[in-house]
Design a protein around this nucleic acid. Structure first.
Length: 137
DNA sequence: GCCAACGTTGGC
DNA sequence: GCCAACGTTGGC
């Protein structure tokens, strides 16, 4: 089972809003990058992703789960991009900040560190487990 | 098909 | 608020 990391600016869509959306979840639109799109398309129902706050906070705050796989984003006029649906699973007891990740040598190869602009990223099994542990889950 | 110009993202 | 990195656009 693959794991992922998705980013959002809290001023646009925050973890709290994701939690408030409840079990039925919400769509994750706005991806306008082909690499990110590839990752979205690779997601399967039931797979989990870290929810990262960019700009404000710069930390992983929670875990979301894919409840609907890739489908066209009707807000995209070009028709090239799409989205998936996520629901909030649980919050990290201790958010894991970018600084913390950068300070952990085992996480130095994370896409988050090396290609910070990519909004949807794969996370390896080892990275997933370690961050869960660091987050107090 | 190349590449300069421009726009956007996101860490600082 | 700045700017580096990256993606996209458009003229040639």
């Amino acid at each position: 089972m693959a794991h992922w990391l998705v980013k959002s600016e809290p001023s646009v869509w925050s973890w709290q809003q994701q939690v408030d959306a409840g079990a039925k979840g919400t769509f994750w639109n706005g991806v306008r990058n082909h690499v990110a799109k590839q990752h979205l398309m690779a997601m399967k129902k039931g797979e989990q992703a870290f929810f990262y706050h960019s700009n404000e906070g710069k930390e992983i705050v929670g875990i979301v789960e894919v409840i609907k796989t890739f489908y066209p984003d009707h807000t995209d006029e070009s028709g090239k991009f799409g989205m998936v649906d996520f629901k909030a699973v649980k919050a990290l007891k201790h958010p894991v900040s970018l600084d913390t990740i950068k300070g952990e040598t085992k996480l130095k190869d994370m896409v988050l560190v090396n290609n910070s602009r990519l909004s949807v990223q794969p996370v390896t099994e080892a990275e997933w487990k370690l961050i869960c542990k660091m987050g107090g889950i």
